[in-house]
């Protein structure tokens, strides 16, 4: 029997008041609604930007009809695009079609835009998921390793590697990887889609800058975290170094790192995938968007931009929920 048992239970001291009981209503439902609201705002802004850029700031009919077109031919193209209508009518039609997820027919491919996107989008998502997985699985351990001995050679090497990763332009990095592993060594295919070997180079190219940034954020937040009071207390409790780092510090480090991972995913999806898919001829919506832009395929371009915006908004919403699961302190305002 231990000594403490003999002490028995302390008569309950008048405990200082804790936090008041949970608020009434459904704060979680309100939170989701609020996040959805700002997501809708993003989609609206994207839709308006696309509209202004494609119909007010430029004249796609002129480009499509070609420089040698007569005034009649030009008018015919304009009418077929509906660009001869008043702007307001155009905008109402545009919004109605978007709301119905009807993006029209691609001029270039002459098939419905939604069908094209449905074919190409999964490839982009696959590439982004593999790339971000690589970035996370390599970046977080690198960041932790560097943070354990700040200023050491290991730290400097990691910092240099992370910096290099985020400094290399992706189109050039992709070209160099192709030159080395596909052309010179012949280990991996240069481009296209197929077996698992086809995704290695594009995923590394897409993920490397993200890996660098994730490693940097992990490193700096881990260094701050390891200097915090509660980590000192954990060490005073005699807990081992590994336990302190992984069970105590890492949990707190993951809060800002999750934000960065979410950001990186959005960047990859709505930006860098365009470049990487083009370099590796990966059949995703990014490469498709570039081809659509080159052919002035208005409906296809706006369809892609709109769908990506929706995917990004849904992703941001998902991240908000994950974020709250990691850090329950976040107020459901």
């Amino acid at each position: 029997m231990s000594v403490i048992d003999q002490v028995g239970t302390e008569p309950a001291a008048p405990a200082p008041p804790g936090r008041p009981a949970a608020k009434r209503g459904h704060p979680f439902g309100r939170y989701v609604l609020r996040r959805l609201g700002s997501g809708v705002l993003v989609i609206v802004l994207v839709a308006v930007t696309v509209f202004v850029v494609t119909r007010v700031a430029s004249d796609p009919a002129r480009t499509l009809a070609g420089p040698e077109a007569t005034q009649e031919q030009y008018e015919a193209v304009r009418a077929s695009l509906g660009l001869d209508q008043p702007l307001l009518t155009q905008f109402v039609d545009y919004v109605r079609d978007l709301a119905a997820l009807d993006f029209g027919i691609s001029y270039w491919q002459n098939v419905p835009v939604s069908g094209l996107i449905a074919t190409f989008l999964p490839n982009t998502v696959l590439l982004v998921v593999v790339a971000i997985l690589f970035a996370v699985l390599a970046g977080i351990p690198l960041g932790i390793a560097a943070a354990l001995r700040p200023g050491s050679n290991a730290d400097q090497a990691t910092a240099a590697f992370a910096l290099l990763g985020l400094s290399l332009p992706q189109f050039w990095l992709g070209a160099m990887l192709i030159l080395l592993f596909a052309v010179t060594l012949g280990w991996l295919p240069t481009s296209g889609q197929g077996g698992i070997e086809h995704i290695i180079l594009p995923a590394i190219t897409l993920g490397l800058p993200s890996m660098g940034r994730i490693a940097q954020i992990t490193r700096t937040t881990m260094i701050d975290e390891l200097a915090s009071q509660h980590i000192l207390v954990a060490r005073a409790k005699g807990l081992g170094g590994g336990y302190v780092v992984f069970r105590h510090a890492l949990r707190n480090v993951m809060v800002p790192v999750t934000t960065i991972i979410s950001f990186e995913t959005v960047y990859a999806l709505a930006g860098y995938s365009v470049i990487v898919e083009t370099v590796f001829a990966w059949p995703g919506v990014g490469a498709l968007a570039i081809q659509a832009i080159q052919r002035q395929d208005l409906t296809l371009v706006q369809g892609i931009v709109f769908v990506i915006a929706v995917v990004v908004v849904l992703w941001n919403l998902l991240t908000d929920l994950v974020y709250r699961a990691i850090d329950p302190r976040i107020e459901l305002r």
């Binding site: 700002s38 930007t49 960047y267 930006g271 931009v305 908004v313």
Partner: peptide, 23 residues
């Protein structure tokens, strides 16, 4: 709000769109 919306959709895609159509 506009800043948040832009940060939430930081894609190169919109930049591409503008450059492609405006010149």
């Amino acid at each position: 709000r506009v800043a948040d919306a832009q940060l939430a959709f930081p894609g190169l895609l919109l930049v591409l769109l503008v450059v492609a159509f405006v010149g």
